[in-house]
Design a protein around this nucleic acid. Sequence first.
DNA 1: CTGTTAGCGCTTTCAG
DNA 2: CTGAAAGCGCTAACAG
Lengths: 350, 350
Amino acid sequence: MDDRTPPERKKRPTLKDVARLAGVHVSTVSRTLDPNADHLIRDEVKEKIRAVCRELNYRPNSIASSLRTNRTKTIGVVIPDITNLLFPPIFRGIEDELAAQGYAAIMVNTDGDADREEQLTETLIARGVDGIIAASVPRQDAHIARMAQRGFPIVTVNRRLDDPSVPSVTNDDDFGIKRILTHLVALGHRRIVHIAGPQSLSTGKLRAEAFARYHAEILEQAEPPVIVYAESFNEAEGERCAEQILAKGTPVTAALCANDRLAIGAIAAFKRRGLKVPEDISVTGFNDMALVDRIDPPLTTIRIQHYEIGRNAARMILAMIENGTLPPDGHKVLPVELVVRQSSGPAPRP
Amino acid sequence: MDDRTPPERKKRPTLKDVARLAGVHVSTVSRTLDPNADHLIRDEVKEKIRAVCRELNYRPNSIASSLRTNRTKTIGVVIPDITNLLFPPIFRGIEDELAAQGYAAIMVNTDGDADREEQLTETLIARGVDGIIAASVPRQDAHIARMAQRGFPIVTVNRRLDDPSVPSVTNDDDFGIKRILTHLVALGHRRIVHIAGPQSLSTGKLRAEAFARYHAEILEQAEPPVIVYAESFNEAEGERCAEQILAKGTPVTAALCANDRLAIGAIAAFKRRGLKVPEDISVTGFNDMALVDRIDPPLTTIRIQHYEIGRNAARMILAMIENGTLPPDGHKVLPVELVVRQSSGPAPRP
DNA sequence: CTGTTAGCGCTTTCAG
DNA sequence: CTGAAAGCGCTAACAG
């Protein structure tokens, strides 16, 4: 009579369904699907089970698995703003490496706001992420440091904390500055100003320190070098700093900027004041982000390995998670290289 | 004697812990925390429970909740490549809107590969995403169409399927082309070539069709307009197409490109051949992606609302999920505007 | 090699 | 208004 099949099953098949059709117990199916346990099962049984899985198009429910194992195979990625051209390739590196290991990434944008960062980090944890990669940390980030201390897997990328206990993957900021300074000096520049980034960020601080140190070392000038400080790493601040330099009337033939965005702003300001880059003043950047080879003039800069720092950060966090949270090799610093384009040229004759 | 506190509890508190401390049943706690059910609980009890939650710093375990409710509050975002400057602002729009509604985004990069897309989409579904926003679809995307037909919430953004049953949020491609063509004609151009995008993508197709239609309408020329087709939306193809135009010797005073990256490539090729942009030839783009205002020459283009199409796509998918998968308003098309910069100028006198 | 058992932490009827 | 009970789908001892 009413032995018709029920009205359209939409539900995804579960382990139980597979077990029933294969005539075995659910745990047998579970083991068959677990690469670490499938050697325990007889081959014929495995065959049978695999066949049923295929037939039903069975997909394990990762939520259920997560609840049981307390692992989500998901990593939180905390970024200031994905719209900042520096971050997409870093994120892509992270994503690719994670995906290759069966992990997924949840990205949140903090806009550099500490409160937002804390709040978003909490929601990531509430979602059960297994670890966090943070690209948005200031040098003193109490919240991140605290979580790391508690044993939660965290690595920072591109920037790092002053606190050395939080592992990081960064660029060789020091060498980058040295390299580009050497380049400018070789072009005959002696009056070189540094447009520095925010000193609350490791990148801003390290690059400014390197500038001061190598400037003293290479140029051996009596007076200390001129450094103007930007409040954030963006074009508007680059413009403001350039204006400030011009206003002060500091004699200068080159502006070594702490990143590309500052350089872009500086170039705009200099041009607006009728200066030619690089004929009147050379301007250099740092990062070699997308499209800086197409701007006017194409930017001389330091190429960092965006994609690779991302991949390395992902590898590091995965290692921490597997080895139960022990930092594998504290701080990784990737090499950088100079890319000479047209924004730097011979120092003008006085 | 041994009434010391146990040796360091690391575990997160659970509903059960809260219930015990508050002297109520777990279900009472659960209701208190559920905005849709908390009216059932007496105020004093709620107070008590809230206090305990605060004291324990209780955070609901969203995994457990997901397992029970079969909802993860997570959306999959399928993008060709976040490294492509078009996508970061779109993704940011998606992310912001989702976050505001308590949802998170998992992003995957397909590199435009259909197999990868299918495979990655499957893993998203296995992870239990409640819906998918796809920015990477070709016009005929069997896989996406099939999933949508099955009732899985999907919306496409920036591009759309030919199949009208899959909802989308796109730009007014047709008007954008009309607007920029009008601009060029107003500058005196009569020999305008179109560097078209891949015809397998809605953007490529729609823009090329619009070009042909409005060209005929506005210029009323006997011969059909010249269109060269790029195989993908990138700089290299822009260069190739520009070379091809030059090689053919087609007389042309303006190249209307289907997007900014093609325009950037075309400009590079024209310059390399000694042509000046815009004095000898005007070049225009589409999208107004980051930094095209800083390249040489600054690009005349159509500004799309990157961020807003992202937000709208997020809103649409959330509506579908809440209303149980009913497309709320099929296809949303956001307005675009012309941005005139220096890559377009008066047609040269012959 | 395979089955049994006992939950992970939460939601949701169903009672009272 | 609150408690009891069942169970989402899977894993991991522990027995055989």
